[in-house]
Amino acid sequence: MRQFTAVVNPTAGGSSAAATLLQVARVLREAGADLRTEYSRSLAHAQDIARDSGEQGRVVLAVGGDGIAGGIGGALSGTDAVFGLVPAGRGNDFARALGLPDEPEALAKILLDAEPRRVDTIEMRSAVHDGTVVLGSVYAGVDALANRHANQSKLLRGAASYYAGGLRAVTTWRAADFRVTVDGQEHAHRGYTVVAANSAYYGSGRMIAPGAQVDDGMLEVVMIREAPRHLFFTLMNELSTGAHVARPEVTVLRGREIRIEADRAVPYGADGEVEADLPVTARVLPGALKVLY
């Protein structure tokens, strides 16, 4: 029987993480599993707990949203530790990419019975992130600004906060000149955003990179060019299905290492949490993390 350590972000999803874990924990314990619960004081604290528990052979569960999932998954990347998710945040985009169920009993069954499968992770390098590892995507431009607004929202949650953040960001954004280098080949790009995606989803269910797969050893690079604002709002709506990639304003590339630079201070982010300014390099780490899904 598996032994679990659940690392909880107590502020995730409007403080719903503990309540979500209780439902899953009941099923795990009824099945005879050992479960310890640890509440994190910070992301660094959560990562320390995760590393210690993984070294003890315990399955490490990230309880919260994409921030703690990426932080803990990144800390365990490259080790033999087994990672699991109890999605309880605003976005839960990496859990969505894995196809994890919302229903607690179904999720608990996966955690108890599924065989670990290897997925890719992303290593970031920049002036402030020297080897930081994340799970879902690295994005630069208007979407990083939108995510900042969403994280600052006090009234809205989930997809609503990301949509409102996107509207606010687009109304103030002016196109940037990017230089995007994919596996050594440079691409000039003037526009709104550049995304290096391991997961298809970001921003609470928006399918930014519909062709991205978490286990193919590649990153999907999505670039949205400069366009009238009304067209960009249309593109935002099409992110719900991934239909935006068929538009001429959108370029999709694939590669293993992507460097993103810009002609001015442009923010970038990753997994809904990491914030800094370009340049940044994102490199895929194939099969670096063992996950239950």
Rank of each mutant, 00 (worst) to 15 (best):
V134N: 06
G217K: 04
M124G: 05
A140Q: 05
S161Q: 10
A127M: 05
E220C: 04
R157Q: 15
A159K: 15
H189E: 14
L100P: 00
R168G: 07
F178W: 05
D216E: 09
G191Y: 00
E186W: 09
P210H: 11
L100E: 02
V133P: 04
R179F: 08
Y139V: 12
V180C: 13
V214Q: 06
V195P: 08
K109M: 09
L100S: 02
G165Y: 05
A114Q: 01
M207T: 08
S137H: 09
R174H: 14
N92I: 03
L135I: 02
T172K: 15
R118A: 15
D130T: 10
N198S: 05
G217L: 02
Q213K: 14
A196Y: 02
Y192C: 07
N198W: 03
E105G: 12
A175E: 14
Y201E: 04
M207Q: 14
G184F: 05
E115P: 03
L155P: 06
A159D: 15
K109Q: 13
V195L: 14
G217I: 05
N198H: 03
A175T: 12
S126Y: 00
D215L: 09
L98R: 02
V170Q: 10
P116N: 03
H149Q: 09
S153T: 08
G99I: 01
R117K: 14
G89A: 08
A160C: 08
A114E: 01
A95D: 03
G165Q: 03
H149T: 08
P210T: 08
Q185A: 12
T172L: 14
A95K: 01
N198L: 07
P104S: 00
G184I: 04
A160V: 11
R117P: 10
A209L: 07
